[in-house]
Amino acid sequence: MQRVNMIMAESPGLITICLLGYLLSAECTVFLDHENANKILNRPKRYNSGKLEEFVQGNLERECMEEKCSFEEAREVFENTERTTEFWKQYVDGDQCESNPCLNGGSCKDDINSYECWCPFGFEGKNCELDVTCNIKNGRCEQFCKNSADNKVVCSCTEGYRLAENQKSCEPAVPFPCGRVSVSQTSKLTRAETVFPDVDYVNSTEAETILDNITQSTQSFNDFTRVVGGEDAKPGQFPWQVVLNGKVDAFCGGSIVNEKWIVTAAHCVETGVKITVVAGEHNIEETEHTEQKRNVIRIIPHHNYNAAINKYNHDIALLELDEPLVLNSYVTPICIADKEYTNIFLKFGSGYVSGWGRVFHKGRSALVLQYLRVPLVDRATCLRSTKFTIYNNMFCAGFHEGGRDSCQGDSGGPHVTEVEGTSFLTGIISWGEECAMKGKYGIYTKVSRYVNWIKEKTKLT
Rank of each mutant, 00 (worst) to 15 (best):
V4T: 13
M6K: 14
M8W: 12
L14F: 14
L14T: 07
T16K: 10
T16M: 14
T16A: 13
I17F: 09
G21E: 07
G21N: 12
L24N: 04
A26Y: 07
C28V: 04
V30F: 14
V30C: 06
V30Q: 14
D33A: 12
H34C: 06
E35H: 07
R43D: 01
K51Y: 07
N59R: 02
R62L: 00
M65I: 14
E66N: 06
K68P: 05
K68I: 07
E72I: 06
E76W: 00
F78E: 03
F78A: 01
E79M: 09
E79S: 09
T85F: 07
Y91P: 04
Y91A: 05
V92P: 07
G94S: 13
D95C: 05
P101L: 05
L103C: 07
N104Y: 05
N104M: 04
G106E: 03
G106S: 05
K109C: 04
I112P: 09
P120R: 10
F121W: 10
G125V: 02
N127R: 10
D131Y: 14
T133V: 11
T133A: 12
N135I: 10
C141P: 00
E142G: 08
K146V: 08
C157R: 00
C157N: 01
T158N: 06
L163D: 01
C170Q: 00
S182Y: 10
Q185A: 07
L189G: 09
A192W: 14
P197R: 09
P197K: 11
N203G: 09
A207R: 06
A207I: 11
E208F: 08
E208W: 08
I210G: 14
I214D: 08
Q216H: 12
N222Y: 13
V228F: 09
D232T: 14
G236D: 04
P239W: 01
Q241G: 07
Q241L: 15
V243A: 13
V243W: 10
L244P: 00
S255C: 09
N258S: 06
E259Q: 07
E259V: 07
E259R: 06
T264I: 03
V269Y: 04
E270T: 11
V278P: 00
A279W: 00
G280M: 02
G280H: 02
E281P: 09
H282P: 06
H282I: 09
E288H: 08
I297T: 10
I299A: 08
I300V: 13
I300F: 06
I300C: 04
P301Y: 09
H302C: 02
N310A: 10
N310D: 10
K311M: 07
H314M: 02
H314I: 01
D315S: 03
D315P: 01
I316P: 01
A317C: 06
A317V: 04
L318P: 00
L319E: 01
E323H: 10
S329P: 15
A337D: 00
D338C: 05
N343C: 03
F345K: 01
K347R: 15
G355W: 15
F360M: 15
G363C: 04
R364Q: 10
S365A: 14
A366G: 11
L369D: 04
Q370D: 04
Y371Q: 13
Y371W: 15
L372G: 10
V374K: 03
D378T: 06
C382K: 03
L383E: 15
L383D: 07
S385T: 12
T389V: 10
I390M: 09
C396N: 02
G398S: 05
H400E: 12
E401N: 10
R404Y: 15
D405Q: 15
C407R: 05
C407G: 04
G413T: 07
V416C: 06
T417N: 08
G421F: 04
T422D: 01
L425I: 04
T426C: 01
G427R: 00
G427C: 01
I428E: 00
K438V: 08
Y441G: 02
T445Q: 05
S448M: 03
R449P: 15
V451A: 14
K459P: 05
